[in-house]
Every structure is written in C-alpha cells, then in structure tokens.
Design a protein around this nucleic acid. Structure first.
Lengths: 113, 113
DNA sequence: AGGAAGTGCAACTCGCGGGTTGCAGTAGCC
DNA sequence: GGCTACTGCAACCCGCGAGTTGCACTTCCT
C-alpha cells in the first residue's frame, strides 16, 4: 500500500526504453502524429508503437486525441519537468549528506607536530 | 556506433527499479554501507543487492571502495544532477515546439457565418 | 592457527516486457 | 454502396532481468 503504483518508477521505466525515446523524439519533431505515421519512420511494427504509446500515455508523457478515423498523439512536457525537479532535489540532498559525512570524518583533526 | 552504449538508458533503467531506489535511499541515509548491511534492511538476499549495486555502479550512481574485508558503497550525485538538467532541457524544448505548433494552428482564423 | 564474518562466482528458476502476426471493426472517400 | 485506410484486440514467441541457493575464497580477530 505504501508504493502507490510507483509513479516515479512508471515514468522512469517508460523513459528507459530506447524505442520509446525515439517515439517521443518523433512526436516532438512532428508536433503530433498517429501511431502508423510514427511506425513508418521506425524499424518496428505499428503494433509495437501502439503498445509503447500506451505505456507513455499511462506515464503521462503523451496525450492521445481522436481526429476522425485516426488517433493523433502529442508529447506532454509537464511530467518530465516534474521529474527533472524531483531528481535535482534528490541530488541536492545527497550532496548535503555527503558534505555532512565528510565533516564528521574530519572532526578529529590531527594536531600538527 | 551512434548510440554509444545508451548512457541515458542505462541511468534511467537503473533508476526505474524500485528495489534499486530503496538501496540508493539506504545508502544516502547511512552515508556509506556494505552490501550485507544494506541487504539486512531489505526483504531481498545479499546477492540480489550485490547485483543491483553492480548495475548502479555501471550507471555511475554509486561508488565502491574496499575497506579491509568489506566493500563500502556510497552514493554519487553527479550523474543524477546531469540527468536532471538533461530532462529539464528536453522538457523545455518540447514546450517550445508545442508553442510553435499552437501558433501555426491558430493563424488561419475561421470567419464567423 | 583456526574459526567467524564477509565477499565473489556460478548455475538455475521464473515472470514480464518488447516484438510479431493475423484478423475484426470502423471511419472516409469515390 | 463499396473499396480503402486506419485503429483495436488477441494470441503467441523469446530473451532478459530480478531473485535465489550453494559453495569457494579472503580477511580479521582471539
């Protein structure tokens, strides 16, 4: 119950796959595109792209809008921004801790002879 | 040759695993610790932790230092910071593109009937 | 010296994620 | 109305990653 569906993990896992990142790049370059269109520019099948888009959508990285008989996908920056902030915060905290440890390790200063 | 061993993917994949993140938290909390120590506080075997630490080390998120008969691991913030910056940059670029698309879409104003 | 505590290596299981193919359904266009 | 171009669903393959167990090796302590 503590894990709460692991939102961070979902996002990171979504981003971790190279094919998925290529899809995101393709979407960002085109502004918006359908799964078929994207698949045409990649070495994988349309179905694979569809699955990836589902994952990306679940992670909130992408937005789907029905446009007649096709479905247009567009990139969604908010989650990425949030993630970046989160990572920066964690990094800062780590640095703080490392600093603290270092101080403690140096507290018994060796007196010069 | 272009992918260069997919550094970003390595980092993201390393971060994507919840157990790995727990390990990182444990390390950050303790400052530094051995695999056995970390494993004691987690519901997995020591060997599992060792493997995870190997992955984290390969991703540059962790640093190993031999301390007599044991190996102490410590967290390493640099890569995290770099990653955060990278993500923020990508997010910004996406936003820029979205802005541009929106402008284009709104340029031919539909005349009212 | 000899036992305790720790690490390192290897073999093995198992589930899931990335990928494919095939087919049914539905919206557009002539 | 009928053909075409999409999307949606399902079944299936395969490899890899997370985890375990067992054992050999090294370092420390008394």
């Amino acid at each position: 119950m503590t894990v709460d569906r692991d939102v961070a993990g979902e996002l990171l896992a979504a981003l971790a796959d190279p094919t998925r990142r290529e899809i995101l790049e393709a979407l960002a370059a085109r502004g918006e595109a359908s799964a078929t269109t994207v698949a045409a520019g990649l070495p994988v099948s349309r179905q694979a792209v569809v699955k990836h888009l589902a994952v990306l959508d679940a992670a909130g990285l992408v937005e789907a809008r029905r446009r007649g008989r096709e479905v247009r996908y567009a990139v969604r920056p908010e989650r990425l921004t949030a993630m970046a902030r989160w990572m920066a915060a964690v990094a800062t905290e780590w640095e703080a801790r490392l600093g603290a440890i270092k101080q403690i390790a140096e507290s018994p200063a060796p007196p010069p002879p």
